[in-house]
Design a protein around this nucleic acid. Structure first.
Length: 435
RNA sequence: GCGGUAUUGGUGAAGUGGUUAACACACUGGUUUGUGGAUCCAGCACGCGUGGGUUCGAUUCCCACAUACCGCCCCA
């Protein structure tokens, strides 16, 4: 151990090779599936101008007011590490003029990458965390909403998750929301003193948040509060009903949760969350995916009036969930060959051998620690090698090498030359023996 | 940002104000002058998160800090 042991910054994690194997699998599953739905990957910067986020997420959201990693760079630009993915994608959509008529509509994209929020870390909640997200621009159709929700569910099912809850709600359009906001305040105001202190503040800042309170007394009050669904304008209501019709047609199970609120201010109309009540992620239901419509966002970031919808999946939470339900996840691949070499005079030949084996596309490893044969065999065993090639002075002299199949213990001498010229035949031959 | 719990080797952990920090797993070496997954033997914490303090003496008591986890806030 060195003198000073550095620690990674609070709320960050090292993803070791055994983990990244599993992450790759999940990410690859997403890439394949999203491609079927015609979503293609977009990569935007990990940091943006601060305003991109402050304007999009809303000035009252906690994400902006207290969780942003922001700083001034050497050119005195106000920069922020992205706390979420949508704003950057919207900025890219506008900046690259992806609204142009020659682009296919809706314009669909997905992203995978790290996000940053200055928060108190807990299990499944990191300061640097990762999301897979999708966005679709340029269509108002609730069929697209349904598709997006279906795709998220599809994704989780592909990974072997079935015990999830899909909750949907509608925030309506600006008019619906304004009317409801007032109705909610009118309802709650007489009970102001009964509300928790947090909720008393919420009531005027962002009254919909009161609906979300975990305080028991708040919840009791909120239970009889008016529902936003009763305040939808006719247009918004039609959309809302169509969405359900589409989801029903797909046979997708969902729950309507009229008290569901999302953390970012840009949402309107459809919002949804996919939740699990896994213990490892804390008490009650934990959201592993959330999203919705953001019809005003493109405009807010300087683009033409364009509707949009998207969602994001929290990868840390997803990985914890997959581990806890023992969903199938890949393990380290066994290697094909381990070359055991005995004596210094075989060193060069061993080096050439592993390279030759690799040139055939098989994986191969050898000893670099001058271990004795026993130690090398142990290493081969730990790597779950299929075959061991033993090369000693004898073999070198006779130009024959010992081929051992670890699983059965069968050994045979083969011409050294064959490893270089006909390795696949040797592998096939061994296969023949085992069948 | 607030409140709480925790922090001993590569890992899981036991333990006490006072000479050598238990046990297990893993690892390394030997038992087998060239063969793994078995047995047996041996080795493996300059040291108990970091920094202070109390004390004749602290890993064990106190304080601060760091980190992790739990709850709140909030959220993926």
């Amino acid at each position: 151990m060195g003198k000073k042991a550095f620690q990674k910054p609070k709320g960050t994690a090292d993803l070791l090779p055994s983990d990244s194997l599993k992450w790759h699998y999940v990410e690859e599953t997403a890439r394949l599936l999203f491609s079927d739905y015609q979503y293609h990957e977009i990569r935007t910067p990990l940091f943006e101008n601060y305003e991109i986020f402050s304007r999009s997420a809303g000035d009252t959201s906690d994400v902006v007011t207290k969780e942003m990693y922001d700083f001034y760079d050497k050119g005195n630009r106000h920069i922020a590490l992205r706390p979420e993915g949508t704003a950057g994608v919207v900025r890219a959509y506008v900046e690259n003029k992806l609204y142009a008529p020659e682009e296919v509509k809706p314009y669909k994209a997905f992203y995978i990458g790290p996000m940053f929020r200055y928060e108190r870390p807990q299990a499944g909640r990191m300061r640097q965390f990762h999301q897979i997200g999708v966005e679709a621009f340029g269509s108002e159709s609730p069929a697209l909403d349904a598709e997006v929700i279906a795709m998220a569910v599809d994704f989780f099912q592909m990974l072997g998750l079935t015990d999830l809850k899909v909750a949907i709600n509608s925030l309506g359009d600006a008019t619906s929301r304004a009317n409801y906001r007032q109705a909610l305040i009118d309802y709650l105001e007489p009970h102001l003193t009964e509300l928790s202190s947090d909720s008393q503040i919420r009531l005027y800042k962002n009254p919909l948040r009161v609906l979300d309170s975990k305080d028991e007394k708040d919840q009791a009050l909120v239970a009889n509060a008016p529902s936003i669904l009763a305040y939808l304008t006719p247009d918004a209501k039609t959309r809302w009903e169509k969405l359900q019709a589409y989801l029903d047609a797909l046979g997708l199970d969902y729950e309507i949760d009229s008290s569901m609120v999302r953390g970012l201010d840009y949402y309107n109309h459809t919002i949804f969350e996919i939740m699990t009540n896994m213990q490892e992620l804390g008490r009650g239901w934990t959201t592993i995916s959330g999203g919705g419509r953001y019809n005003g966002l493109v405009e807010a970031l300087g683009g033409p009036k364009t509707s949009g919808i998207g969602f994001a999946i929290g990868l840390e939470r997803l990985m914890l969930l997959l581990e806890s339900v023992q969903a199938p996840l890949p393990e380290a691949e066994p290697i094909d060959f381990y070359v055991v070499n005995i004596g210094e005079e075989t060193d060069i030949e061993a080096l050439k051998l592993v390279q030759a084996i690799r040139s055939y596309g098989y994986s191969a490893e050898r000893d670099y620690l001058d271990r004795k044969p026993k130690g090398q065999f142990k290493a081969a065993d730990r790597l779950h090698a299929r075959f061991v090639l033993t090369l000693g002075p004898d073999e070198l002299e006779k130009q024959q090498i010992n081929l051992k199949k670890l699983e059965t213990g069968d050994e045979q001498k083969v011409e050294l030359l064959k490893v270089y010229t006909a390795l696949p035949d040797l592998v096939e031959m061994e296969k023949g023996v085992e069948n």
